[in-house]
Every structure is written in C-alpha cells, then in structure tokens.
Write a protein that binds this DNA or RNA. Structure first.
Length: 733
RNA sequence: GGGCCCGUGGCGCAGUUGGUAGCGCGUUUCAUUGACAUUGAAAAGGUCAUUGGUUCGAGUCCAAUCGGGCCCACCA
C-alpha cells in the first residue's frame, strides 16, 4: 500500500465496482417481503435537471447516502429513488434569458417549438447532475430514476388532476394573483419575497359629491383609475357621518362610495383608504365583502391599461410621477411623506410583483391540510429542524387555496379544454403561419381569416372569460376544443413525487416501499415542497408520505456569509472532490452539523477531513503489519473489546435517531483519538493483541463506511479481498 | 404586529433523557528516519450572552433582558 492515500487512484474504480455489483438496486418488493425484510425508503429530492450541483446538493447527497448505506448494511430492503425536476419557471427563465441575448423572445415561437427547444437545452445538461452525484458516492438505485416530465409521471400527474376535479377540489376562479410582468407568469404566495423599500406616502384630496373633501393616504396613486371606493374604520368618529356618501374620484371623475370596513387602521395616514380591488390583495378582499366592481388599471405587460385614460400605455413608475404631477396641478396633493414599506418582489428576477386579476386554476387545500395537521399532531410525521415544525404547522393552519396555473410552456399543460363555439370571445395569442405573433378575440381572429387549426397550432395564450365552462380530459374531447395554455406549477408535480415515482416503477413498489421513512431537504423548501407532498400524498394514498422530515441547514462560507455569485464565495463541490476527495467533502459537510441549523464550510475543514481519510489509510497499513504480531490476548484486550462495543452502540444509536452530525463526530473522535492514538500504541507496547486490533479495525471500517465510503472500500479491497464493504453487514454491539 | 431559532475557549461548531464542558482550524513547546509531518506528546485559552428561578445538582428545564438571524402579517 502507498504511504499516502491518493483519492484519485481509487474513487473512479470504486464507483464502477459498486455499480457493477448491482448493490445499489433495491430488492424486488415481492422478494424482500418474502424474506421478511424491513423496507427503508428515501425519495431523493429531485434537483433541477439542467443545473450542475452546488454545495446544498452535495449536502443532501451526503446525508441521504449515509442513511442509505447504513440501512443497507443493517440488512434492510433499502430503496433510494433518484430523479430530476424540470423546474418549470426556473428553467424557462434561464432559457428566455438566452433567447434575449439572441434578440428573441418566447413570442417568436409557437408552443411546441419553444417546448422542444427548452427540452433540448435541458437534455444537453441533464446528465451532469447525475454524474456529479455519483462522484460524491451516491449509492442510489439509478435503475429507478425518474424525471418529472417522463411520460408515465406526466400521466400520473394528469390523473391526479382529474381525480381532484372529480372530487370537487379544483376550481377556476378569478383572483388577484401575484403576477411578475417580467417573467410573464403568476406565482403562488410562496414565491413572493417581501422586501422593505423606500417609497413615498401621498396624501390626496378626494372631493365629496356634495361638497367638502376626504383625504386618503396611498403609496400607489397610479392605481387611482382602478379605485372603486374609499374606506374608513366603522369606529372612526371623524368619518362616521361620511359613510354612504359619494366622492368624485379625481382624474377619472367617477362617483365612488365611502364604505366602512374594520380592515382600516384609524391611526395610519388619515384613517381613510382608497380601495383598488384589482391591484391590492387587501383591497380585493374588501371589495369582495362590499361587492365592489373590479377595474383593472394596469395590464399584464406592466403598463397602464385603457381604464387609466390619458396615462394608458405608460409604465407604472413614470405613471406614478405623471399622476402626482397632474393631481398637484389640480391642487389635490395635500402632502408627501417619505415612507418605508414592504413590497412583494419576484423570487426569480426580483421585479416588483403586481397583484393582477386573472382567471387561474386553484386547488382547495383546507380539507387536505386538515389531514396533514393530523399526521403531524399524531407524530406519524416528525419534523427535525430546529423548531421549523411549528412553521409548517402554522402554514397548514392558515393555508390558502393553491394557485397551480403558470403562464409558461415548460411544464405539464393543464388538461382542460374550452368549447370554441361556446366561447367565441375568449382572447387568443398565437404565432400565425407568417410567423407573426397576433392577439385578439377568437372570433376576430377567425374573421381575419385565421383558421382554428392555425390558431391551435401556434397558440401561446388563451384567456377564456371568468365563468367559462371547461372539460377536464387527457385527450382532445372534440374538434371544436382548444386546450388551456397554462401549465401546472412545478410543485404540483413534485408534490406528488413520493407516490408518483413509486407508482410508475416496479409493480409492488408503492405497496411495499410506501410510506417512505425519511425525506431530506433544505429547510428553505419546507412549505413549498414538503408541505405540498404531505397534502397530495395523503390525498392520493390516505397515508402520510414520510415518517421523518430531516431538514438540513444552509451551507455558508467560512465566514458565515451566504454564498453568492456577487461576493464570489460560491464553492463548487466538485472542485473540492477533485482536490481533496469525495470522502473529505462528505465528512466536512456533515460533521458536527445539526438539522435546521446553517453551517459554515470552508476549505480548511475539508482539508482536515482529507487528513482523516489518510489517517484511516495509514491505520490500515499498520494493522496489516503490526509491531506486536502476537495473536494471544493482551492485558488490554478486555477493555478494548468493551470500549469497541460501546462505540458500535453509540454510533448505531445516533444513526437510528438521525443524529448524523453527532454520529460523524463520534466515529471521527473514537477512531482517531482512541483507536489510533491509544489502541495502536497499546499494540506497539504489546499490551493489545494484533487479533483484537484487527477485529477492531474491521469494525471501524464498517462504522466509517457510510461517511467515508471510498477510502474504506479501497482498504477493504486491499485487506479483506472478499466482496464489497458496501454490501457487508453492520457490526453488532 | 405575531411566531421561531441562535448567542459555548481567537475563528467555526458539537454537546443525545439535567450530573462538575468537547471537536476541527489556529496558537506555544517538544518529539519523530518503521502506519501516518496529511503525524505524535504536552500546553495556553471558556464564570457555556446577562439576570432571576426550579433542582441535591443546569450549557442542558422555566421566566425576563440584551444581541444576531429567519418566517409570517391587508398599516394602504
């Protein structure tokens, strides 16, 4: 054996030996069942198919692989099911940025072509993440690999939607949605980030119809053309006498009522609020309570709409200035104050989110959430992650209906159809045969000579009226139908992941390997993903999808800063693997970490763990040729055996209880500071037999294997020369 | 405004059901040609944020305070 362990000489060879052995594959359910084996199932959180791995991925690969290797050695029927996600918005966003560089946009292509282009782009990179996971040592069952847009997964997702619809849990409704005019799609509230911004609070005089005025405070005067009321608090003595009176809305010169609603805070501003139901979530709610009409002043491109009269066509920011100037000229601006307020921004592109009214598909979540709450309350599902279980519970308790429509093509198209003859005025946007993007009502377009077939072929957007009837069907229900152009929220498909991946694999996988034991992910997607999996999986199977939720923390740099491209402190996990070996990176990522807490990882820690790999290697060299060759028990043998048992017991116990960081620390310390520093020295002084030392070392190889699989396997091949360490059995205490 | 998490030697972090504090990196001194300098031995360094309480005993439980971070929320 070489004097030093060089990971480059071993890792690739070991990966292929493992793969060739077939040990990664989970046993067939029927056989495992017959053998009386206990299943251990872990569904991999699917990384974006087109993205290379970052440290967060390396973290989940490591933690999950540790658990999988441990359970495999314990003799469980172990399934680690891998996959990748199409990541609808993320991917289309990146792709459109590429198009923009070529001076093109999504409107230069018909749906099919655009989809194909993105698909090709994703396929070009889709192998990368899988290769990288393998380099980290991921012992997943690659034969069961799934992609969220695989035909069988898509079929499964569509069936789920049909079932939800049959059960009355789907509706199409016009709601204020969080719309990003730059991304051209709506988002669920989970994808909106609230940021504090400096703005101005304008105090504007609204004249009363029968003389006098009422002053309202607003940060968004440009939405005034959409005002449909002024609201005051019912308890507010200053305004009680005005409730029910009419005001003349400046600029538009429309009459709108003064209403009383408890949502108004008396202390803020003037205690009077303009109500703009089409452009503010709270106003929308108020509008619903008071049956106020919806007037859209801003359109989906982020410009002022026709209702804004002279301001129509202007972008929001300049329109705000223009409106204030005009009002000021009319003497209607009482005062302007500097004001810090929360603004919703797009998590993707950081543009300001416009709340806009749009007909979308929603899933009713209340009844689904009740079952998830029950699973948490009863302990059927336990969340590990520094109190984040309470955040989950809070979300489930206050859950809102889930907007699952996205206005993008990269995803699963919603299987809903509209009858053309029944909806002649729905708006269509399509690429015509002359490759121009045209938009208008269906009937207009047909009158202009565009055939239904032409429209259907180039269709990008379809906007049927609010109450339009629709048919849910996987296939076209008749010649006179056009399909909804929205696709499902990516999380709608990944929310079914544990069930969908098992149901579309081997025949008995779902019945045997479900519910899964552990789901592992970063806490940043607790609500957006984990919660959705609970909702949909319980709905589909009646059982909670996982017993344990293990939430790992964010990985920060050595100084505790978030990794970001602008700081330039992003570490590529594969570079570290190249330099120090996969074992070193794995150990550095998990040692002394605890669920839910962020951890800082820098090169010095990885280097320290590379030293561990070398230490193991050299311990092997000693054990194979110890100074004391005596097989007979030495005076320290008894104590050594006792201690060894204790170590096995501790590590096993910690792994059983998902205390992975602690288990890593225990093996590290006991191996280095007890086995190497004490036991080997005892052997040198002839107090410990070589026999005991060797048995102890083999135990340590096994205990270390889940954490540092490569170096331990390399030694096993050198020393034991029988089978693979990967497939050996876990030591008994 | 409501909720959650964190505050342990210079730095980064553990500490499993409460029993007189550990690890990595760093620092100091010494050692080493036979497992490993990617090493070993020894050492310096912490009143476990502060205050009060429960307990025979608290880093570990409770309360309050200060500091840092996060989540949620219709003060426009």
């Amino acid at each position: 054996m070489d004097k030093n362990y060089d990971h480059k000489l071993h890792e690739d060879k070991i990966i292929s030996a493992w793969e060739k052995s077939g040990a990664f594959a989970a046993p067939e359910a029927s056989r495992a069942k017959a053998d009386g084996k206990r299943p251990f199932t872990l569904i991999m959180p699917p990384p974006n198919a087109s993205d290379p791995l970052h440290v967060g991925h390396a973290m989940f690969v490591t933690i999950e692989d540790i658990l999988i290797r441990y359970h495999r050695m314990k003799g469980d029927a172990t399934l680690w099911l891998p996959g990748t996600d199409h990541a609808g918005i993320e991917t289309q966003f990146v792709f459109e940025k590429k198009l923009a560089k070529q001076g093109k946009s999504r409107y230069d292509f018909d749906r099919k072509t655009l989809y194909q282009m993105i698909s090709d782009y994703v396929n070009e990179f889709s192998g990368v993440s899988v290769q990288q996971m393998k380099r980290l040592g991921a012992s997943a069952d690659w034969g069961r690999f799934k992609f969220t847009l695989d035909g069988d997964i898509v079929g499964f997702v569509l069936t789920t939607f049909e079932k939800l619809h049959r059960d009355g849990l789907v509706y199409r409704g016009e709601r204020l949605v969080n719309y990003c005019v730059k991304c051209g799609t709506s988002y669920s509230e989970l994808e909106v980030i609230h940021e504090e911004k400096n703005g101005k609070l304008y105090f504007i005089k609204y004249p009363l119809a029968d003389g006098g005025e009422i002053v309202v405070a607003t940060t968004r005067p440009e939405t005034m053309p959409g005002d449909t009321a002024v609201a005051v608090n019912p308890e507010d003595g200053r305004y009680k006498h005005l409730v029910g009176k009419m005001v003349i809305l400046p600029l538009a010169n429309r009459l709108i009522p003064i209403i009383a609603d408890p949502m108004v805070e008396k202390e803020f501003g003037t205690g009077a609020v303009k109500i703009t139901p089409a452009h503010d979530m709270a106003d929308y709610e108020t509008g619903m309570r008071h049956n106020l009409p919806l007037i859209q002043a801003i359109d989906f491109s982020g410009r002022m709409a026709g209702a804004a009269g002279e301001f129509a066509g202007m972008k929001v920011e300049p329109a705000r200035t223009a409106v204030i100037e005009k009002l000021d000229a009319l003497g209607l601006v009482e005062q302007t104050k500097e004001h810090i307020h929360n603004v919703g921004t797009c998590y993707r592109c950081h543009s300001i989110i416009e709340p806009l009214p749009l007909a979308q598909f929603f899933i009713k979540t209340k009844t689904l959430a009740a079952k998830a709450i029950k699973a948490l309350d009863s302990g059927e599902t336990v969340v590990l992650g520094a109190g984040r279980d309470k955040i989950l519970l809070d979300w489930l308790t206050n859950i809102r209906d889930w907007n699952i429509s996205r206005q993008i093509v990269w995803g699963i198209r919603i299987p809903v159809w509209y009858d053309v003859t029944a909806n002649p005025t729905m708006e269509v946007g399509f690429l015509n045969t002359a490759s121009e993007f045209v938009r208008g009502t269906l009937i207009e377009m047909m009158e202009r000579g565009h055939s239904l077939a032409e429209i259907e072929a180039g269709l990008q957007t379809l906007r049927p009226a609010i109450g339009a009837e629709f048919v849910v069907s996987k296939t076209k229900p008749g010649d006179n139908y056009l399909q909804e152009t929205d696709t499902f929220d990516t999380w709608f498909s990944s929310g079914q992941w544990p069930v969908a991946t098992l149901a579309t694999n081997r025949p008995d996988d779902l019945s045997y390997y479900y519910p899964t034991n552990v789901i592992e992910s970063g806490y940043d997607i607790l609500t957006i993903w984990i919660m959705r999996m609970m909702l949909l999986s319980i709905y589909l199977t009646g059982e909670t999808p996982f017993k344990w939720v293990y939430l790992h923390g964010l990985i920060r740099d050595e100084q505790g800063r978030k990794m970001s491209k602008s700081i330039g402190n992003v570490v590529n996990p594969l570079d570290l693997v190249e330099k120090y070996g996969a074992d070193a990176l794995r150990m550095a990522l998990v040692m002394s970490t605890t669920p839910g807490s962020d951890s800082n990882v820098g090169e010095s820690k990885v280097r320290g763990m590379r030293n561990l790999a070398n230490k193991i290697w050299n311990a092997a060299r000693y054990v194979m040729e110890p100074v004391n060759q005596d097989q007979k028990p030495g005076p320290m043998d008894e104590e050594f055996n006792q201690k060894l048992k204790q170590v096995i017991h501790d590590v096993t116990d910690q792994l059983e209880n998902l205390k992975i960081g602690l288990a890593a620390e225990t093996v590290y310390n006991e191996f280095w500071h007890w086995f190497c520093d004490k036991a080997i020295e005892d052997n040198k002084s002839c107090e410990l037999s070589s026999d005991a030392l060797r048995r102890g070392f083999v135990v340590f190889l096994k205990l270390l294997h889940p954490f540092t699989p490569f170096v331990t396997e390399a030694i096993w091949q050198n020393m034991i020369k029988d089978g693979l360490l990967l497939a050996s059995t876990w030591p008994d205490a």
